[in-house]
Nucleic acid binder design. Structure first.
Length: 921
RNA sequence: GCGAGGGUAGCCAAGCUAGGCCUAAGGCGUCGGACUUAAGAUCCGAUCUCGAAGGAGUUCAAGGGUUCGAAUCCCUUCCCUCGCACCA
């Protein structure tokens, strides 16, 4: 069956190129891939789900645009290329063995552009093999000169709109590579966070002793400083003032925006017992402590024994030895669950012996967290909650008491791939996108309210992201990309040059006709915003571009995985509202779940991936498609398991066989065909609804499995020997089209096999025809089906050989009861209502029993059946009479249908509406 | 830690936003049968327990609550996934 996938592929060449027309448009985009490696089945779903949607709307008569491009901005491929050039085992294994890159190509990977060129070609090839209905004319990469011109225009806008500001920014930095390092450049410590310490400046003679703290508000409780007597500190001139810090600290501070000049050494021991002073806590002594790490921040610590377990226990240890016994903890924070001195409580609760105890770290965390979340400063110190006081005190110190900020990793070692240690460096002149701007946020929130979000649960996540976003460092020193127009030393960072390219797609194929040099901001200003300016080049041709943009924009839906909510998906709304007028703003987004492989997370770096191309080769594109869209709804995580995929393939084969068989059916239709076609109308309606709501899995259930279930019953109901009637041809035509978005290759082939003209990809989507829906026939069939099931279950239980089957039809008065109950609002009172009737009273217990049974039955039947029964009249006798020969051949015994007569059959008393009594003898 | 979303039978997965159609759709797997020289494919049946009459009992992470009635509503606990930024 896979052999015709290439045939269909040829037929589709260029047919999905979409142009403005008088039809309504439907424009969808997916986050473009970063082609640094091969596509796996997870990527496959990301692009196949939108394709199913695209194909659906195309058949619905819309002009559908589904474009694709490649994001090659950024640093990763540069790193990859370096690693390959260097002969890095892991990188070479990944590319040669897992991604199956031929040796000669791999050798060219020393040029990063070769990597993206190779994989973008591979992406395109694999996407085509999956049948994606993409308009490939519009393909581009983000380093095309034309695209760069577009980005320059975008940034001119952002700059003029005052959304880009300059500032300093701490980054991880490798002194050996002389570059900032990203996660993927790290050998170790990729989870390390940059902490912001406040250096509290204690005066010591002419010098300053900076103690590093994360908790500046505790300055009021300082009783002493800690110095490690085992190490030698250095005297350094920092920005003109003398500091005493560890050697390590001096090295670090040098990278953080300070001038540093080493003056001399000073042993820790010589500082012990000296006095220092700070305006907020007065004079305190310096005490010795071995827990002080010279490689942590400044290498000097201020001691707050009331609130820091380390400080408390170090002091206690000294006091046990009879020293410094006059020093008492000075509490300043109240916190529920602890007494006056929380550090003491915590230490004593765990029975910690001394400062070398391994539990000290968790203990510190515990007190720290408790005080941060629910602690409050004493009224004498302002009475504010800790989380507020912390920032207030830090600000006060920075402004008035000479404090300085020092950045440091949270105690984990961070090592660059080059082997060198990584430090925190302040980068100057860094440009930021000011996402923190409340006015900008407000615009975004407002537009977000008007956007369709699928699934609806993600809305809160978007709202939270908008509120939480801070300024984003949007420029880089290294990598591929477009230079910042007004500061060309900087490159625009990847997440910032990929926010409004959906607009670029609309003109991507036409703008190629222009030389990049003439693409001034004024040109784009006209294309996207309609602003005329004098001397626009090739004004007439530009008009075409403007038309194209106006036709397609705004996009209808953007698709992406859920991990991009907190950056890309939200960024792009920010950029859109900053640049485009309301009518051009995005309409909706669909957020996807993640992919698993055999229950484990799919991850290229761990080698746990199944390549999409391999999947297509092994199972065929349609099988892969049907599995990927059918195993879970798009927003749910999905799990790829080969054994499940195999059964999907069989399902497609069954469909194929049924359709081919059906084309031979010629016999005239009968009652059951009316039923089949009637049911089909519902499946059309439900499939359409599901696809409209992006529920690909639900759509597949309706379009495939429900139809198949009907066919099963249909075949059973056919007279012996019959293979089906000509209604099957009609069903086939509908069925192929309902399945076409999901399995387009098979559908295309079947479409021509069954003699239809043209491509099914452009065939009209089936429309449900109400005039072909026969509720009574469906209800009658339902009755028959339920009765057959009941008979079967009885047959199974009684293990004697039956000789005859009698169906006893409930009397009319039971129908009356049934209807009365079904229509009643208050079912607890209904029995009284019924017994008012003289005829019913005469029946006595039979009537009350029937009420109970009917009530139970009504609860058990689907509501729409109850409704139908309470309104219409169903001639059960007639239905079973007509099905007599069917029942006789099903069970192989004579069948009689009689009115329920308890005198003749004891069982007959059990007969109820829609549930005849069954007597088997 | 914080924010968001989840935990349903051997597995995947509906249902849960509007409590009674729920022993809980559908698919997979497994078992039995038909077909076949055989395998595969296909078709039929079974798949929580009990039951010689279409029924009954016990289940929907764990515990508690609301209700005549809860997988569905409320509370608590446990577990999983995603995000927490300069990285695409």
């Amino acid at each position: 069956m896979q052999q015709f996938e290439s045939t269909a592929g040829e037929k589709w060449e260029q047919v999905f190129e979409a142009n403005p027309s008088d039809r309504p448009k439907f424009y969808i985009t997916v986050a473009y891939p970063y082609p640094s490696g091969a596509m796996h089945v997870g990527h496959g779903r990301t692009y196949i789900v939108p394709d199913v949607i695209a194909r659906f709307w195309r058949m619905k008569g819309f002009e559908v645009l589904y474009p694709m491009a490649f994001h090659v901005t950024g640093a990763p491929v540069i790193g990859i290329s370096k690693r390959i050039a260097r002969g890095d085992e892991k990188a070479i294994h990944l590319y040669r063995d897992l991604y199956k890159v031929p040796q000669d190509v791999l050798e060219r990977f020393t040029n990063p552009l070769e990597i993206v060129r190779h994989f973008s070609e591979e992406y395109m090839r694999v996407m085509k093999s999956c049948g994606l209905s993409i308009d490939w004319r519009r393909k581009f990469t983000t380093v095309d000169p034309t695209y760069s011109k577009f980005i320059e225009w975008q940034w001119k806008h952002l700059g003029e709109g005052e959304h880009v500001v300059k500032g300093a920014h701490p980054v991880r930095y490798c002194p050996q590579c002389e570059n900032p390092v990203g996660d993927h450049d790290l050998l170790e410590g990729d989870k390390a966070e940059i902490l912001k310490f406040t250096l509290v400046m204690f005066q010591y003679g002419d010098s300053l002793i900076p103690t590093a703290t994360l908790r500046p508000e505790t300055i009021y409780g300082v009783t002493n400083l800690w110095i490690n007597p085992a190490i030698t500190y250095v005297k350094v001139k920092v920005d003109g003032r003398t500091w005493i810090i560890s050697q390590e600290a001096a090295d670090k501070i040098l990278l953080q925006d300070h001038t540093v000049e080493v003056m001399g050494k000073i042993p820790g021991t010589s500082l012990i017992d000296q006095k220092v002073v700070h305006p907020l806590c007065g004079e305190v002594p310096i005490l010795p402590a071995e827990f002080v790490d010279p490689d942590m921040a400044s290498g000097v610590v201020m001691s707050v024994p009331a609130h820091a377990p380390f400080d408390y226990i170090a002091l206690r240890d000294l006091q046990k030895a009879g020293k410094y016994t006059t020093i008492q903890p000075v509490p300043l924070i109240t916190v529920p669950g602890y007494g006056q001195v929380p550090a003491k409580d915590a230490v004593e609760r765990l029975g910690v012996e001394n400062q070398l105890d391994s539990r000290m770290d968790t203990l510190t965390q515990e007190v720290y967290a408790a005080e941060f979340s629910s602690g409050k400063l004493y009224d004498a110190y302002g009475g504010k909650p800790v989380r507020i006081a912390r920032d207030d005190v830090a600000a006060l110190m920075l402004e008035q008491y000479g404090s300085v900020v020092m950045y440091e990793f949270d105690n984990r070692t961070v090592v660059c791939r080059c082997g060198s240690r990584v430090y925190v460096k302040i980068l100057h002149d860094q440009w930021f996108l000011q996402y923190s701007d409340p006015a900008w946020k407000a615009q975004v929130s407002e537009h977000l309210r008007d956007m369709a979000l699928v699934p609806p649960e993600v809305r809160v996540e978007f709202e939270r992201t908008v509120g939480w976003l801070k300024d984003w460092a949007c420029t880089r020193r290294v990598g591929l990309g477009t230079r910042l127009p007004w500061d060309p030393a900087w490159l625009i960072e990847p997440l910032s040059d990929s926010t409004i390219y959906m607009a670029y797609y609309t003109i991507a194929h036409r703008i190629r006709e222009f030389a990049p040099e003439i693409l001034t901001p004024e040109v784009f200003e006209y294309i996207f915003l309609g602003k005329e300016s004098p001397n626009l080049p090739e004004r007439e041709k530009l008009g075409k571009l403007r038309e194209e943009f106006l036709y397609w924009y705004p996009y209808n839906y953007r698709f992406s995985a859920k991990d991009l909510i907190s950056n890309h998906l939200t960024f792009q709304i920010f950029h859109h509202v900053a640049i485009f007028p309301k009518p051009s703003l995005p309409k909706g987004m669909v957020v996807f779940g993640m992919g698993l492989l055999n229950g484990a997370k799919m991850s290229s770096s761990k080698g746990n991936v199944f390549l999409l191309e391999d999947a297509v080769q092994e199972f065929g594109a349609d099988t892969v498609r049907m599995f990927l869209v059918g195993s879970a709804e798009p927003w749910q995580d999905f799990d790829w398991r080969n054994e499940l995929v195999i059964s999907t393939k069989k399902q497609i084969e069954r469909l194929w066989n049924t359709v081919i068989e059906s084309s031979k059916a010629t016999e005239a239709d009968c009652g059951i065909d009316t039923w089949l076609i009637s049911r089909l109308q519902h499946h059309i309606t439900r499939t359409t609804e599901a696809l409209t709501k992006f529920q690909t899995r639900q759509a597949l259930q309706e379009a495939f499995f429900s139809v198949e279930a009907d066919l099963k019953w249909y075949r059973r109901r056919l007279p012996d020997g019959s293979k089906g009637h000509s209604s099957l041809k009609e069903l086939s035509s509908v069925w192929i089209r309902l399945m076409a978005p999901i399995i387009p290759f098979t559908a295309e082939q079947l479409w021509s096999e069954t003699g239809e003209m043209g491509l099914v990809s452009f065939a009209p989507w089936p429309k449900a025809d109400d005039s072909r829906v026969y509720h009574e026939i469906e209800l009658a069939e339902e009755l028959l089906l339920r009765t057959v099931e009941d008979i079967e279950s009885i047959m199974k239980l009684i293990q004697l050989t039956p000789s005859s089957l009698t169906l006893c039809i409930a009397p009319d008065w039971k129908y009356d009861i049934f209807k009365t109950i079904a229509r009643s609002d208050d079912r607890s009172q209904v029995i009284r209502e019924i017994m008012k009737d003289e005829g019913m009273r005469a029946r006595g217990k039979d009537a009350t029993d029937a009420v109970k049974q009917c009530t139970t039955l009504i609860h058990r039947l689907p509501p729409q059946i109850v409704e139908a029964l309470s309104e219409g009249v169903l001639d059960e006798r007639d239905i079973f009479d007509q099905a007599k020969s069917f029942l006789e051949s099903e069970f192989g015994i004579p069948v009689t249908v009689v009115p329920a007569d308890p005198g003749r059959y004891a069982k007959a008393a059990a007969a109820l509406p829609f549930k005849p009594a069954i007597v088997i003898e």
